[in-house]
Amino acid sequence: MPFGANRPSILTDYKRRWTLEKERIKRMVIDLVAVLSVKYRFVKPRPDLQYFQVTKIAKGLYESMYEQFATGNLDPIRPRLCESIEENLTARIANRPKNTHLQWKLHRYIGRPALMSYRAGMMQLNDDNEKQTGITQAVVRIRSEQSLRRVKRVRAADGKVLEVLEEGSVMGANDGSKGKEVVEYFVIQRMIRNGVWGDWMIWGTTQESTVESVERARRRKLGLGDDE
């Protein structure tokens, strides 16, 4: 669901808002049925889906991912990265200018991280409910104030290595005292393979829904072109 000013007003833009609300309600019902099926029908013994812990888990993974990405060393967080996000971050680190790194600082969270979506489903059904294969996936909205600076290592005349802030590379205040507000939709997922639950993994980030994206999805489902 769009956040803040991106969300159509229910008073002045009722039609567009109702389009989004209908989709939200439909998805909530579908997701709830799927989660309950995994919890009470398909998987035995009944799993702990960690529904009420997932925002805290996501917050920890979010901080770890950006801290390691800033340093240019993904090894400590690599076991918790899904393949696509690992490839993306690795490529971005490789494209950095030589002898540069980032300084990322999370100044504060603006409100608590909010669980926007929690889905579950079976990828392969087995006659033995203790050996199922499936997945749970959560989307957490994280709103924070953070800063980012690109720093280059240079050698001074006396041979000492200095760190110099690159011009135009700052997100937030130049002195790092204040950050910029950032809203991200952080996606984590957890697999069950042959009845064994794995750790929560970082899938990446996603975007808010829009009225246009909802309508396009509806047309595709009906077999219509996007312009019809």
Rank of each mutant, 00 (worst) to 15 (best):
G159P: 05
I142K: 01
A173N: 13
R141H: 02
E167Q: 12
K160R: 15
G159L: 06
M171Y: 06
T133S: 15
R150Y: 02
R155D: 01
S147L: 00
V154Y: 04
S117W: 02
V170A: 05
G168D: 05
E167S: 12
L115W: 07
K180N: 14
R143H: 04
L148R: 11
S177C: 06
S169W: 07
D128R: 09
I135Q: 08
E167L: 02
K152L: 08
D158S: 05
V170L: 00
G179A: 12
G159T: 04
D175P: 12
G159Y: 03
G168W: 04
R153K: 14
R143K: 07
L115G: 09
R155K: 15
L115R: 14
Y118V: 08
A120W: 03
K131A: 09
V170H: 02
L125I: 07
G179K: 12
G134L: 11
A157G: 08
K180Y: 13
V161A: 08
R143T: 07
T136D: 10
Q137T: 06
M122K: 06
G172I: 03
N129F: 02
V140P: 00
R153G: 02
E166M: 14
L162K: 14
L148I: 08
S169V: 11
E130W: 00
R119L: 04
V161Y: 10
E130T: 14
A114F: 08
A120Y: 03
K180T: 14
R150I: 05
K131S: 09
Q124D: 10
K178D: 07
V139F: 00
R153W: 01
S144L: 13
A156P: 02
K160T: 14
G179P: 13
V151C: 07
R141E: 01
Q132F: 06
R153C: 05
D127I: 12
K180C: 11
E130R: 09
Y118N: 11
N174L: 12
S117F: 03
V140F: 01
V139R: 02
Q146E: 12
L165D: 13
R149V: 04
V140Q: 01
V140D: 01
Q137A: 05
A120S: 14
M116E: 12
R143M: 01
L165W: 09
S169E: 07
E163F: 06
V170S: 05
V139Y: 00
R153D: 06
Y118D: 05
G168N: 07
N129I: 04
V170R: 01
L148Y: 04
V151P: 08
A157F: 07
S144I: 00
M171E: 08
E167G: 00
R153Q: 13
Q137C: 03
K152F: 02
I135Y: 03
E166D: 10
G134C: 12
D158G: 06
A114N: 07
E145Y: 10
A138K: 03
T133M: 10
E163N: 15
S144W: 01
M123Q: 13
N174I: 10
S144F: 01
I142Y: 01
G121D: 10
N174F: 05
R149I: 03
R149C: 02
S177R: 09
Q124S: 11
K180V: 12
Q124T: 08
M123N: 14
V164D: 05
E166V: 14
R150P: 03
I142D: 00
E130F: 03
M123P: 01
V151I: 15
G168V: 06
G179V: 08
A120I: 04
